Simulated scan of single mutants.
Amino acid sequence: MTVLSESELIQIRRHLHQIPELALHEFQTHDYLIEEIKKFRQDYLEIQVPQALPTAIMVLVHGSNPQRTIGYRADIDALPVEEKTGLQYSSQNLGIMHACGHDIHMTVALGLLSYFSEYQPIDNLMFFFQPAEESESGGKKAYELGIFSEKWRPDEFYGLHDNPALPAGSIGCRMGTLFAGTTEVNIDLIGKSGHAAFPQNANDTVVAMSSLIMQIQTIISRSIDPIKSGVITLGKVEAGTIRNVIAGHTRIEGTIRGLSQKMILEIDQRLRDICAGIARSYNMEVNLDLNQGGYWPVENNPKLTEIFISYMKKNPNVEFIETEPAMTGEDFGYLLAKFPGTMFWLGVNDDSQLHSATFTPDESSIFRGIEAIKDFLNYRMKA
């Protein structure tokens, strides 16, 4: 086996695109990845499948004179989206699609692995094919299960995300936060239902909910530094059963986005304070549930990111673009809170957005991305 060619990489990506699977159910994807990895030269490779996380794959490439272990992560799950691209290699799994481009992520990782299986790296390289990025906090699960221990523990960690707004094959990055952290917000207001004609005998949760929503809107405008950035969106409200019955229960569902973990925790506390105040003011029960899981802000390590950006800017074969932070979520942020590292963008040039049913990344980005990352890793191992 030699290093994977561009045409072979595209065929691998198209096969992966046809077999998308949801978080923690990536069994067919897992088996296909193992099958491809076993085709590579095995002299320097060591493969491990964690028993506690059976769809994950870890591959250690033993270095010739290792001073560190460099980790590289590729997420492998898909989204519950019905594909509408019309491609000949469209998803074969009804209602599931690689609408976030994880098929691109996996293919780039396989390309890198095929190269380093033929050309032994100086340092150890640890490839982590991660399940459950889109939901279920796969990165956090992996960390808490202790799979990054001993020789499998990276000294630094890297990972990419494809970006349809950037030219195909370009590399984007920034110092500081690349992705926001996210927290799911669920609020249940429990009062007392009753006849619309006798409001004095009921406790109206719709009225309390209206006041609560208006107060929540002041958190970003009046409790957060305007130089920084955060978002609270309440996207779903359910209340009542019929027009002439006062609602005794109302549910609000939403999301928080913040560019630092400190900011998210500040927003969380203000939400708690406001909910407690509404409960007292309206004499009802207000239950707030905040679920962040592993979706922490992707805060790039300053030293390693400076090295990464400097190299990409100087490489004449790389189109580097300094990007703005994005309010989308990514569970690699949790791993970057535990290990120093950097996340970056790979441009895939598409008119459709991530998570859309028509998302069709430019496949020419795969080989160009591999070349840029491979060259950086070789450079980093000599530093």
Rank of each mutant, 00 (worst) to 15 (best):
L265M: 15
Q269G: 09
D77T: 01
G248F: 13
S260C: 06
D162H: 12
I366M: 01
S7W: 13
F128T: 01
G294L: 01
L79K: 11
G230N: 01
Y115H: 10
G181T: 01
E36H: 11
T182I: 09
R68M: 13
V61C: 11
H98T: 02
Q11S: 14
I264D: 08
D273A: 14
I227G: 14
R13F: 06
Q217Y: 14
F128L: 04
F148L: 09
Q11W: 11
R14V: 08
L45W: 12
Q67V: 11
H105A: 05
D77N: 00
A202G: 07
T342E: 00
G347C: 10
N65W: 02
A196L: 12
Y311I: 07
I309N: 04
F116Y: 04
N378I: 10
E184A: 13
D289F: 09
I12H: 00
Y282W: 14
L166T: 05
Q48D: 15
H105M: 01
F376I: 03
G235R: 02
I34H: 10
I246D: 12
T305L: 07
F148A: 08
Q200D: 15
D123Q: 04
K314V: 08
Q18W: 11
I220K: 00
K236W: 14
A109L: 10
G86E: 07
C275R: 07
I187P: 02
P164I: 06
K313Y: 10
E36Q: 14
C173Y: 02
I366K: 01
G169D: 03
Q88H: 15
A197I: 05
K151C: 13
I19Y: 07
L304I: 06
